[in-house]
Nucleic acid binder design. Sequence first.
DNA 1: CGACAGATTGAGTAGGGTCAAAGAATGTGG
DNA 2: CCACATTCTTTGACCCTACTCAATCTGTCG
Lengths: 227, 227
Amino acid sequence: MPDCAHCPVRDHSLCAGMKAEDLVHVSERTDQLEAPAGQVLYFEGDAARFFFTIRRGVVRLVRSFPDGRRSVVGFLHAGDFFGGGFRRDVYDATVEAITPLEYCRIGITDLNELTEEFPELNRQLASMAADRLHAADDHIVLLSRKTAIEKVAAFLLASAEWTGKSSDFALPMARSDIADYLGLTIETVSRTMTRLIDHDIIELPTPQRVMIVDWPALKSLACPEAS
Amino acid sequence: MPDCAHCPVRDHSLCAGMKAEDLVHVSERTDQLEAPAGQVLYFEGDAARFFFTIRRGVVRLVRSFPDGRRSVVGFLHAGDFFGGGFRRDVYDATVEAITPLEYCRIGITDLNELTEEFPELNRQLASMAADRLHAADDHIVLLSRKTAIEKVAAFLLASAEWTGKSSDFALPMARSDIADYLGLTIETVSRTMTRLIDHDIIELPTPQRVMIVDWPALKSLACPEAS
DNA sequence: CGACAGATTGAGTAGGGTCAAAGAATGTGG
DNA sequence: CCACATTCTTTGACCCTACTCAATCTGTCG
């Protein structure tokens, strides 16, 4: 049985508001699992039977067209909670591990029973839904009204925040994931990164590692002020 | 005091799951209001104190940049529920009436008290959040991976569904709203409509009224198949 | 009827896409 | 441990879609 009391994301996920002594009720219904990079947790359209919490690693949420076009609707990190399909009974998007993953899984019916016993879970669920909705709106603004360089700058800043605002961090996802997230092609993502390097705003020690050299410049690109 | 039992959106909104005899508890905490077209219900960033339900009319949710760029993150119709800002205490977006509006308003603290008394409201809230999230993901896919004609076709189809899949319906919003929703300019929206007319797929008796002539063609444009 | 906002049309341009090739990085088997 | 294969990334040349700027048209309302 998982030891939720010592979970690394104890205070940043679903059970953040729960009393320590109640946690055991969550633990006994939760499976602790691992997955290698690349593994699919579930497919868009599958019958939705589980909720998931990431303890370590990164996943991508993907929507695909019949003709092969792909859109990454989001990246999720340690502490993030996803799955379900609340009213609808199918998953909204395909979820794939980008890095090796440690995660927890709980059945939808189990979670529903838990919310009856511990109504504070509802508050947590609602606030996570609100966060996701806010993130989705940010994404919509980014996609509809930002240029390539603004998109990439905003993405790099967000990535830095996921890793604790460090100036030197990993980009675990491939360029194709970034492109499908930003609504660009991989070529444009690559060219734009190069432009940022040429302007001495970032450095790329390896393709999967970023150093932010000029924070103010990156920020003003990501959130353009009135000219 | 509002008469929730005979509300036109009684079965399509927040209180859809409630028993008739409990509705009075909602009624006595709800204000029934009206607003003319163009009125702002609240601004992005305002302290969030209310939730809203539309009984009649259409609103737009707007996010703005400091430099004037604008993004319409969604349109909401009769039965839709919005406002709040669950965990955050400010509204996520500005909400403006597009048509004359009839709506209901309930205080956040009142709603919180109601959910304690009537936990089934939580289920309704969660499912509405899930619907909004699904819609946001659809919007993300549309913005990131669709061409202008696909975007406009998808928008017209969605508009037709809001009005009961009629072939002849009103477009209450201006071209600038459509443009800011689809991530295009008004000129491109206009040109694309003209293209659809030239191909005998739609007609525009007036700029604010659409007739769909060729449903299959419109559908195949909106959801492109594998070639 | 005239004025104004909103919508359409036109001409020219540029940002990002497409197609193609070369260059790293990682992994595999000998 | 190295050679090779594979995949991912970067760079280059060219093109097209959608944007910009500008004029005209249409519908609405005083």
